[in-house]
Amino acid sequence: MDKKSFTQHISQQYNEELEDILNQVMTMGGLVEQQLSDALVALIEGDNERGEHVVTNDYRVNAIEVELDEACTHILARRQPAASDLRLIMAVIKTITDLERIGDEAERIGRMALHLLDSDRRRSPMAAVESLGQHVRGMLRGALDSFARMDTAQAVRVAQEDIQADSQYEVIMRELMQYMQDYPKSVPRVMDVVWSVRALERIGDRARNICEYVVYFVRGKDVRHTSFEQMAQEATGDRH
């Protein structure tokens, strides 16, 4: 399936409405990616200005989500979409929910970053946190890219990257636990790092969700709560 197929309705107006929705999803995705990117700079480098920017900017993500929900409701009510159009609308509704939550996680990271002192940063495994951050950011970008291209093979590859995100998360958490045991007084501050790392891990999960919606939309197969092998099979095999 390719994007062209959304320009082939007999109703030109319908084509435009679907195109607008797809473009808006991409705009929202780009904004969320930027929020995450800024939140990471704030967290790793202690750039408080960026941190504040992320916190105040979250409303923009929310506003696009509301707008897109309305546009999808409009399509459902007015067009009664079927087949791939219906799957597209379902995928969009679910994708923007995950994007909005990723935005919330980015905001959370930005807020935590404002609490941290440079001394906290020196004591925390920041290099590992940054690596995890860049990894999930790459996943988010890949998920959005696979959505834009309706590329199920890429969606499967990106989803599989969640394994690595989870294992990086485990390693960092072990390290932070150990640190808190060794320096109990540091617990309140290190908890901010713990919450941020947890937020990054959740972003990986949500990027994976978006990849699953891409497979649903393109192949008509629901691959949530299945193994990566099954997902890969559904994404590449016959649609039926």
Partner: peptide
């Protein structure tokens, strides 16, 4: 048939495409 039709012709018809 209405969510995941097998044939392109069906898809085109039920989604109002050429």
């Amino acid at each position: 048939l209405f969510t995941t039709p097998r044939e392109q012709k069906t898809e085109d018809y039920i989604t109002g495409r050429y």
